[in-house]
Write a protein that binds this DNA or RNA. Structure first.
Lengths: 209, 209
DNA sequence: GATGTATCTTAGCATCGTCAAGATATCTTT
DNA sequence: AAAGATATCTTGACGATGCTAAGATACATC
């Protein structure tokens, strides 16, 4: 019962099938889109029988959870990189937001899987909120550094949530055809993101008590 | 096979099956959730054979489009009502946003279908943007009435999009378990929405030139 | 009434998620 | 090292799904 602790480089038959399945899923996702992501197709892509995945994942949902988990990790890296590259602490929030939306735009299928699982559970994945270096905390801390009042706990959380909602909302709509002319008008994709964020007060915050 | 119909529109065989199918779909959606919404289940619910829907809808997607379409109409009504009930023009935007999120929260399955079809097409449904009384234009006009500069066309569109992204983002995350304690803290569901919107500058807008 | 067309049913296909049973390789115990 | 236990993978099957083709049935028009 207690065997799955040291999953180092230890091939059983296939040699870490879970890893291979997740990779196969992401390959399929990128190549064929979310609708092509069936358990059988993933098994096919990984070169195993349709029932093989069930020895590593309880069901299809659990495989998707794993794929989504890797997606959240990638998003986290993008956020960290964006914050590090920001020219000033005041620009950090906007840069993070742009990085978020850019990630979603460049990995639309993956982002969809990520949020679909979140919607199914009606909750953020634990890794988004748990721990002090979770993406949620990173955004919250950035808000503090940018001047948010750290004494008002509730206010701070609300601001963090607001930023997240803004980024997610734009992430899901940024690909809409109707916005194409606007993107050209404001000078490209990321300029468009910045402009929208600017209208949401994500960049600079002005509170009325 | 006798149909007890309150014959209003001329019945062919069933008497407006498309209508009955859409109703059956919405009934299923509310009762069993989006995952239970199979074409066969809808046909079953409507009391017809699994192939019958294909004489009224090209495929499953087209049925969902119709269901989504009714959803957007309902959302539109909610927006109109919210604006009419707003105590002041300055409060209108917030009220619209609250109504939007409330609708999504109260009809989670329907809202999901609505946005899933939008994501598939990578575009808003036409009825959202077409026409001067489309929801999009209503929001834009409300922004103008609330003091937005109507001469800067691009800016106005960006602000409208920003508002939409904010509402959608919150709509999809408002049900997340992690927010429950915050909702209680700020005094309930709608108070939570308002608080988040306040942090997004949806309510009052402050531009730096 | 005959003909044509729209509507619905039956039957079938390929695919899907999942499970049960068997086969095979690896690990553990002696 | 032999043997038993366990983990891994395959085969085969079940019910359900989206969809199509062929036939049946009701309606509309002439």
């Amino acid at each position: 019962m207690r065997e799955s602790q040291t999953a180092e480089a230890r091939p059983y038959h296939h040699g870490d099938l879970s890893r291979a399945l997740i990779d196969a899923a992401r390959r399929l996702l990128e190549a064929e889109g979310p609708s092509a992501l069936s358990l059988r197709a993933v098994a096919r892509e990984a070169g195993v029988s349709p029932a093989a995945p069930y020895h590593h994942f309880k069901d299809k949902g659990e495989l998707l959870d794993a794929v989504a988990g890797e997606g959240w990790m990638l998003l986290d890296e993008a956020i960290v990189a964006a914050k590090a590259a920001a020219p000033s602490i005041h620009a950090a929030m906007t840069e993070i937001g742009v990085a978020y939306v850019t990630f979603a735009t460049r990995n639309p299928a993956l982002y969809r899987v990520m949020y679909d699982t979140a919607r199914d559970k009606e909750a953020f994945p634990e890794q988004m909120q748990d721990g002090d270096d979770s993406p949620y905390c990173k955004v919250r801390d950035t808000l503090i550094e940018a001047g948010a009042d750290p004494t008002s706990q509730a206010d701070l959380e609300l601001a963090t949530i607001a930023a997240w909602c803004a980024a997610h909302g734009l992430a899901e709509m940024s690909g809409f055809k109707q916005f194409e002319h606007l993107k050209a008008e404001v000078g490209g994709e990321t300029a468009f993101y910045r402009a929208v964020f600017n209208h949401m007060g994500l960049s600079h915050r002005h509170h009325e008590s």
